[in-house]
Amino acid sequence: MTATAVDHGPAESGGHAEHKSHDRTYVITAIGLAIITFAETATYLWPKVPVWDWGDGVGITVSLLVMMAVKFFFVGAVFMHLKFDNKLLATTFVAGIVLAIGVYLAVLFAFRFFSAGTHMV
């Protein structure tokens, strides 16, 4: 083990600064995520804020979906390192997501989820 430590010594000190900067990124990302979460909750607490109240009820849903996607993206890209890591990993994960969205949206369309509103069975 000691031998290993020596072997890795230089590489580690070299990577030190990089890790520190990552830590900064992590904290900033987390603050951003927290703010978005607050905004999400705000759509419930104050539904009449003009930012998401477009007068037709669609605004809240759309804003929530957008905020959800942004949170999803940043957790994946930063915390799960997809931004820094081998592209193959991101491809694998995105394949799963795209496939899931594709087939399940098709199911929801077949159930007239988007057209029948509450009358859908």
Binding site: L99, G102, V103, A106, F109, A110, R112
Partner: peptide
């Protein structure tokens, strides 16, 4: 292969578009 599953369900009333 992921985009053809409902051909098993043509008579189940999934609607003309599907």
């Amino acid at each position: 292969g992921w985009g053809v599953w409902a051909h098993h369900m043509f008579v189940s009333g999934i609607g003309p578009v599907s």
